[in-house]
């Protein structure tokens, strides 16, 4: 109880500090700490799936992307500071913020008791999917459309990052050239960690059907295992014009949509699985999506191509 209160207080404190921070780098560093504390809170709430995703995607990957954004912004001219709002505006902003806070509080207080829950229905229908993890059941069967859209958003994000390519760089290798280290601990880490990390990622993907885990967590680890040798200068990223690269990024959502359409033909509903085929089909989607998302997440971190000098 005391530990939970301390955790909640720490989350609030870090969140406020992140908003109040004057320097963007400080704000991002605090945001990463916020994500890690938040994943601890999810662990305390027994939502291990959410905790894993928050730590890997919310704190880790988003943090790296934000740090990259800070570096890009720092190289530009300082944005002109907005003039401070007048007295009337300040009062209006205060009233509006108070209204939002009051509305949020009212919503929380007006929640029916007991809170509405679909958990019994999920538990009752989970055996039809052949899965053991209710979270995976919801993500891949009951609400598969949401997951499909999520995977498409990742694909879209890669296209958006690539569309930032400056003139003369299109089709080239993405990301700034990494310094070649002759020797050192990073090189050692980049050599010994990927085999371990790949095993852990495959394990997390495979247990996802029965226990906390799944494709997004596994893909985040796989992406890190690619980024590490890239940062150490051991591997060069492929040119974004490479056909296999584009195919790998796109194949996950495409297979997902194809299986969904097959369900529409045979079962009469988009993303419906034939009886008895749910688990194998979900496994196929999970494995292919992991590959696509892993490559997409790594490409997001690596960034757009830079024109060759």
């Amino acid at each position: 109880m005391i530990a939970d209160l301390l955790l909640a207080a720490a989350i609030l404190a870090v969140a406020v500090a992140s908003i109040l921070a004057r320097r963007t780098f400080t704000a991002v560093a605090l945001f990463i700490a916020y994500g890690l504390l938040l994943s601890l809170a999810w662990v305390r709430l027994s939502a291990i799936d959410v905790a894993l995703t928050e730590a890997a995607i919310g704190a880790g990957l988003s943090g790296v992307l934000l740090l990259g954004a800070v570096r890009r912004l720092a190289s530009r001219a300082e944005a002109p500071a907005n003039p401070p709002p007048g007295a009337a505006m300040t009062v209006l902003i205060g009233i509006a913020c108070a209204c939002v806070a009051a509305a949020l509080g009212a919503v929380i207080l007006l929640l029916p008791e007991p809170a509405p829950s679909l958990a019994p229905q999920v538990a009752a229908n989970l055996p039809t999917t052949g899965l053991g993890n209710p979270v995976t059941g919801v993500l891949m069967s009951f609400r598969a459309l949401d997951t499909l859209l999520e995977s498409a958003v990742v694909l879209l994000a890669v296209i958006c990052v690539w569309s930032l390519t400056p003139d003369g760089g299109w089709g080239g290798a993405p990301g700034a050239a990494q310094p070649i280290l002759g020797d050192g601990p990073l090189l050692l880490l980049a050599r010994i960690l990927p085999p371990l990390g790949i095993v852990v990622a495959v394990h997390i993907l495979w247990v996802g059907k029965d226990a906390p885990g799944g494709k997004f967590q596994a893909a985040a680890i796989l992406a890190a295992m690619w980024l590490l040798p890239w940062m150490a200068g051991l591997v060069a990223p492929p040119r974004i014009a490479a056909r296999w690269l584009r195919l790998t990024v796109a194949v996950g959502p495409v297979v997902f949509i194809a299986i969904g359409l097959a369900g529409a033909v045979t079962e009469g509903a988009f993303l419906a699985y034939p009886p008895g085929w749910a688990m194998p089909l979900i496994l196929v989607i999970e494995i292919v999506l992991t590959a696509s998302i892993a490559v997409a997440l790594a490409l997001l971190v690596i960034g757009p191509p830079v024109p060759e000098p």
């Binding site: 050192g184 601990p185 880490l189």
Partner: peptide
């Protein structure tokens, strides 16, 4: 072990 190796890599960086 993993924390040892990773902090050994991050420190010099």
């Amino acid at each position: 072990g993993l924390v040892l190796v990773s902090s050994a890599a991050v420190g010099p960086m």
